[in-house]
């Protein structure tokens, strides 16, 4: 519970925003995140605790009630919960082998939105992210300029970029500069 002397949370990109005619770049609100690892034979049990089935196909995600699981690897998911509820308690009861590690503060989310969002990302991401090959819901760990990111398409013209905290300044600056040129 919050106390009067509780430490103040200072998100890495506090107060930053960039907006251009075709695209906006905005820090995502703080969220609960888990790095979830589990072998195939535990996926069922973990899914049940999570409240929905973990996606099993590469480059796909699943979500329910403000909680999303992004497939990052054959036994790895990034769980992002923006509903304000804690994810770990439910998983704590799962007996099947898995690893759930809190990475809420490790990652920073940046939302890139608008008709120029795709072009903004394509300034630094070598993957084919056109809608046909990277549809809404698609997600992937990949590269943006000189850093690693997780890219998640949450809408036709909206992406969420997740990166590690100390790279968020680079990511945000890169995306803001690329957004200037997003009328491509």
């Amino acid at each position: 519970m919050a106390r009067s002397n509780e430490a103040l949370r200072r998100p890495a990109l506090e107060g930053r925003a960039a907006s251009h005619a075709w695209v906006s770049v905005t820090p995502a609100a703080p969220a609960s995140r888990l790095s979830l690892r589990t072998p195939a034979d535990s996926v069922g049990a973990v899914s049940k605790a999570l409240g929905f089935a973990l996606p099993q196909k590469p480059k796909t995600s699943a979500q329910k009630n403000g909680r999303a699981a992004l497939w990052l690897g054959p036994d790895e998911w990034l769980v992002i919960d923006e509903s304000g509820s804690e994810i770990s308690p439910a998983l704590g009861k799962v007996k099947a082998f898995h690893s759930a590690v809190d990475v809420s503060h490790r990652n920073v989310g940046i939302v890139v939105s608008g008709p120029g969002a795709e072009a903004t990302i394509a300034a630094g991401c070598p993957q084919d992210i056109l809608l046909a090959t990277f549809p809404v819901g698609a997600c992937s760990r990949t590269v943006l300029g000189k850093i690693e990111i997780v890219l998640w398409r949450t809408g036709d013209t909206t992406f969420r970029v997740e990166c590690w905290r100390s790279f968020s300044d680079y990511a945000f600056t890169f995306l803001s500069e690329a957004a200037r040129d997003a009328a491509v």
Binding site: P58, K59, G73, P74, P126, Q127, S140, R141, T142, V143
Partner: peptide, 11 residues
């Protein structure tokens, strides 16, 4: 072979 598609060498 895990992502089941071709990806750029940078990854």
């Amino acid at each position: 072979p895990y992502c089941e598609e071709e990806r750029p060498e940078l990854e």
